[in-house]
Nucleic acid binder design. Structure first.
Lengths: 225, 225
DNA sequence: TTGGAGATTTTGACTAATCAAAATATAATA
DNA sequence: TATTATATTTTGATTAGTCAAAATCTCCAA
């Protein structure tokens, strides 16, 4: 029942690997190992132990998937992480680009009691500073699809809602370009050959690679659901 | 240089064991093991490793003592712990009787950067909610002697300044008796035979055992240094 | 259908931290 | 001084988590 920080990190990584996949798909061991910064053999060993405790289902040479119990735990780790991140920004006045690493440690140390207080103090928020949804106390996570700067309609005002990368350097770039969550922008051109996307902000027009553009999720302003 | 939570806990326990002793005295292994909730053999093994890393000096069959390096580290752990405790009370509105266990976990997870912010937010406080002194950023800890309810003059107004026990049950008892840090009280009688001390608070008179009385440190109101 | 290439698993070894229980040292008592 | 009680150290084993490198599997392409 008591998951070690390591176990929590495995579950979180599997959850995040899974959420990029279609339902019922398995997360390949190589990807998991890479996400956790361990060698593949280590991931295999650990995942077999997790399967033993009923937190994941593991298919050799295929990959790993969370069970209901594992997902419940993973979501709670994510809840702690994201509430802590928002707390660090809103209450402690830290920069949204630098709270991820701090939260990475604190997510394993904060008690349920403290998390409840943080949640209440912040008014039961829906999203963290990067736009990632915060699961509620019952473990329900608001999951709906967004466009990205790569898929949204051209020359249409959209609002940045989420940044799918926690790298401080990338986040600082986003901040410099005024593309943080909440900003209204407009994709002016996409150049498939150059693999680039140009985005117009109130201040200026920024051009970035497709890979970066795909990490910026947006909502159409006219279609708020 | 990077101390694991376990190492931090050992250093902290040795520091606290030491501070009840005369200068240069060794903390006996049995006491250390008991404080950490491990069997004596475990403490011996660990302490030998700490000695290897230059954090403690260890004398077989005598005990263990912090080196300068070890003390520096221990003090920083204490600083984190106490700042976190005060933060939980002042900012998060938690009860002073219940913050110790939470801080016990957080002290190993908060970064220097966050601790700095907490320290600033609280206005560089001197003591935590139990009256324990908070070492400053340079590691200087304000150490001066107090009386306890067992040693202070009789029928003289004194102020409770520190409670030397983190047990929530004990703390709740102290709270119920209105003997928390800051309260003005007066010892009316001491009964050596009955091993008891009677203390007059504004509300009522409480009688407690000598062991409990010795855990309540006080300052003479007329002699504020 | 037969190689590879690339991913995955296995094997053996290692570190940190722990315990149980036997061995030993120190201190206290007779 | 001899004996006993108590504290401490040793020894051998265990668990969690990890790596390096060898062995194995899967799948695509020739």
């Amino acid at each position: 029942m008591l998951a070690s920080p390591t176990v929590e990190n495995y579950l979180k990584a599997i959850y995040q690997g899974q959420s990029a996949l279609a339902d019922g798909q398995h997360v390949p061991m190589g990807q998991l190992a890479a996400a956790l910064g361990v060698v593949p053999g280590t991931a295999t060993t650990m995942v077999k132990a997790l399967a033993e405790s009923g937190l994941v289902s593991y298919e050799p040479y295929v990959g790993v998937r969370l069970t209901v119990a594992g997902e419940k735990l993973a979501v709670m780790v994510l809840r702690r992480h994201r509430l802590v991140e928002l707390f660090l920004v809103q209450v402690m006045g830290m920069n949204w680009t630098e709270v991820h690493d701090e939260a990475e440690h604190l997510e394993h140390a904060v008690s349920d009691r403290l998390i409840q207080r943080i949640d209440a103090m912040l008014g039961h928020p829906q999203v963290d500073p990067h736009g990632d949804p915060i699961p509620d106390a019952s473990g329900t996570v608001d999951r709906h699809e967004y466009h990205s700067l790569l898929t949204c309609p051209l020359n249409t005002r959209v609002t940045v809602t989420r940044v799918l990368d926690q790298n401080p350097t990338f986040l600082k770039f986003i901040e410099d370009c005024a593309l943080m969550p909440g900003r209204a922008v407009e994709v002016t051109t996409r150049d498939t050959a150059a693999d680039s996307v140009s985005v117009k902000t109130p201040d200026r027009t920024v051009t970035m690679g497709a890979r970066a553009a795909s990490k910026l999720l947006v909502q159409l302003e006219t279609n708020p659901i």
